[in-house]
């Protein structure tokens, strides 16, 4: 597993834990708003958890239009 794949896996695991969804039900290309059933406030909670977990800073505007885990992982990986 390379660094990008590890980042993606950690995101999926974190999202599953935080929103209490079985990890195996989440896939990299899922729309996380739909799959997790979250609104923009909960997405912000997820952003905070990801920033804390990866020790990165992700400006909100960099995530505008990002709805799937894979792209989210790419944005985080670009700051690691």
């Amino acid at each position: 597993m390379n660094a990008s794949e590890r980042t993606l896996e950690e995101i999926l695991k974190l999202a599953a834990e935080h929103f209490q969804v079985p990890r195996e039900k989440l896939s990299p290309d899922d729309d996380f708003f739909e799959k997790l059933g979250i609104n923009s406030l909960q997405a912000l909670e997820l952003l905070t958890r990801l920033e804390n977990h990866f020790s990165v800073e992700l400006p909100d505007y960099e995530l505008q239009g990002v709805t799937d885990f894979r792209t989210l992982a790419e944005r985080i990986q670009s700051r690691l």
Partner: peptide, 8 residues
Amino acid sequence: TEAMPYLP
């Protein structure tokens, strides 16, 4: 209809 519509 968003819970917090002013968020990005």
